[in-house]
Amino acid sequence: MSISVVHHTDPGCPWAYSAEPHLRALEWRYGNGLAWRTVLIGLTESAEQYVARGYTGDQMTKWNIEFRDRFHMPYSTDLREGPAGTGMACRLVVSARLQGYEAGEALLRALRFSWFTNPRRHDSLEVLEPVVRSVSGIDADVVLAGLDDPEVEALYQADRAEARSVAPPASAQGKTAQTDGPERYTAPSLVFEHDGRTLVAAGWQSLTAYDVCIANLDPTLTQRGPAGPDETLPAFPRGLVTCEVALLMCARNDDPNLAAAEEALVDLVAAGKARRVALGNDALWLPV
């Protein structure tokens, strides 16, 4: 029996974006042993909520530099237009999810990449519609129409309510927030459930913390070990960025070697087995 993982997240959260390599590592290591479900937090409905907290375009650009240098995900350091509410992007993910879990996850990942490599405010259809239409395999017109669909709104509000029903261990870890009423999970928070037991890894955590939760819930779960991009890229048809490839290459508790990963990826491109798409200060590497 697989371990259930509830992933509380938001497309506009830099901490959640910075945890993408950890999620790819969990998907690679445990495969179908983990059964994922995503809950959209809905951090803010409007940019004004961030403006009231003192957020500015130049400050957010500086934060992008800090996150880039610490976590190595692709970022743009072009001056950001300013803060943006995340409600519209969250609703689009919920709308896409009606076409299947993978459709929702594909759009969520595309929104993350755009949010942090494009300085535009991501709270209008002018900016968000091209992102939706860039995702292959989903019906973009239906996803966009979902913004006016009462079912999508009800599902989104259910997500928001679930994200604001916090398990006590999350509070004990100091990884919750109270920005719009009830206490809520911060992104990314993972709730692991198996055989009547629940373990909570709230907020940004190390990959080791997730491994410890999984090992305590089911030490018999089959695992895959480290592998190079010749093996990992085909398992992720929508691509991996360099730091994700590097993490999948290294043994547990080792530090990822970004240079070695990039060299291996260049070799794959030269051999016609991968394609490089520039993304922010880095690239998205796609299998061929």
Rank of each mutant, 00 (worst) to 15 (best):
T44E: 07
G85S: 01
N281W: 09
E27V: 08
A170P: 12
H8V: 05
C90K: 02
A209V: 15
V39T: 08
A264N: 00
M1D: 15
V245P: 00
L248A: 02
L92K: 13
A264I: 00
Q178T: 15
P226F: 02
Y30I: 00
P182C: 04
H72A: 12
A227C: 03
V93E: 06
G87H: 14
V135K: 06
A202P: 01
V245G: 01
N257P: 01
Q99E: 12
G33R: 04
L107A: 10
V94Y: 04
Q223A: 13
V166I: 01
A140Q: 09
W115M: 02
P169G: 03
N64E: 13
R120H: 13
P169K: 00
W15A: 13
V127I: 15
L190E: 03
A235M: 09
Y17I: 01
S46I: 12
A145I: 03
E81D: 15
P168M: 04
D255Q: 15
D180Q: 09
L268D: 09
L279I: 12
I65L: 14
D195R: 03
H7K: 10
N257T: 08
R224Y: 13
E48F: 05
M73W: 05
E153I: 08
V245I: 15
A202K: 02
D267P: 00
N118R: 09
S124W: 02
L268C: 04
V241D: 10
S134R: 09
D148I: 03
P168E: 10
M73H: 03
D255W: 07
S134N: 10
K175Y: 01
L286K: 04
P130S: 05
P150M: 10
S189P: 05
A19W: 05
S136E: 15
D267R: 15
I214Q: 01
D267F: 03
T176M: 06
N253F: 12
E262V: 05
G272V: 02
V5M: 01
A89K: 06
Y75R: 01
D255P: 07
E183P: 08
A19Q: 13
